[in-house]
């Protein structure tokens, strides 16, 4: 009888050990994935901020040639404010859409100012903006990939139970509206 108790205890200890170490392993794996989502998001914020930083310079350059196009200039400045107050992927996506629509109006306006189009500073800004668009789309794609991997992992059984236990939550994708899917024209 005593032997039986001992075996039972040994079995329980072994089960606890196995469950515990697999829990720890899963937790560590999820934590690592979550961290890569976060760092990739930081990268997205980084490139978006880079674009926001280009805006004052852009506005000033355009002002020099087309100061009375206030409507467009205000729109662009507002878009920048949107980036600065944005915190979540949804808010960023909204600010992004706003900025891109402002850029489209600017493109129309710029057509009327050949001197602005030929301005060296303006040409360089244009190259920087185009490059930044590309960076944003690259980092956004990588962020979404990281989110997809993480979200898929924490939805799978039985990991979903463990994820809930430790408070892992689904991460938001950085989505853009279908109308913004077309590459915003920065070829003025």
């Amino acid at each position: 009888m005593k032997k039986g108790v001992l075996i039972t205890i040994a079995v329980i200890v072994a089960i606890v050990f196995i469950v515990g170490s697999s829990l720890a392993g899963t937790y560590n794996r999820l934590a690592k994935m979550e961290e890569s989502v976060n760092s990739q998001w930081a990268q997205v914020e980084n490139v978006i901020k880079r674009r926001a930083d280009l805006i004052p310079n852009l506005v000033n350059t355009v002002k020099g040639y087309a100061s009375h196009e206030e409507e467009v200039l205000t729109k662009i400045t507002n878009a920048r404010a949107g980036f600065e107050s944005a915190r979540t992927p949804e808010e960023y996506a909204e600010a992004n859409a706003q900025f891109e629509s402002a850029m489209r109006s600017l493109n129309v306006v710029v057509e009327n100012y050949p001197e602005l189009k030929a301005n060296q500073n303006f040409l360089e800004l244009q190259a920087e903006l185009a490059g930044t668009e590309n960076r944003i789309s690259t980092e956004r794609m990588r962020y979404n990939d990281a989110v997809r991997e993480f979200n898929t992992a924490i939805r799978r059984f039985p990991i979903n139970i463990i994820a809930r236990l430790f408070g892992f939550e689904q991460k938001a994708y950085f989505q853009i509206d279908a109308e913004d899917m077309e590459v915003p024209e920065v070829n003025f």
Partner: peptide
């Protein structure tokens, strides 16, 4: 090598 330089 910022984009503007590369473009140039």
């Amino acid at each position: 090598l910022p984009d503007s330089i590369v473009k140039r």
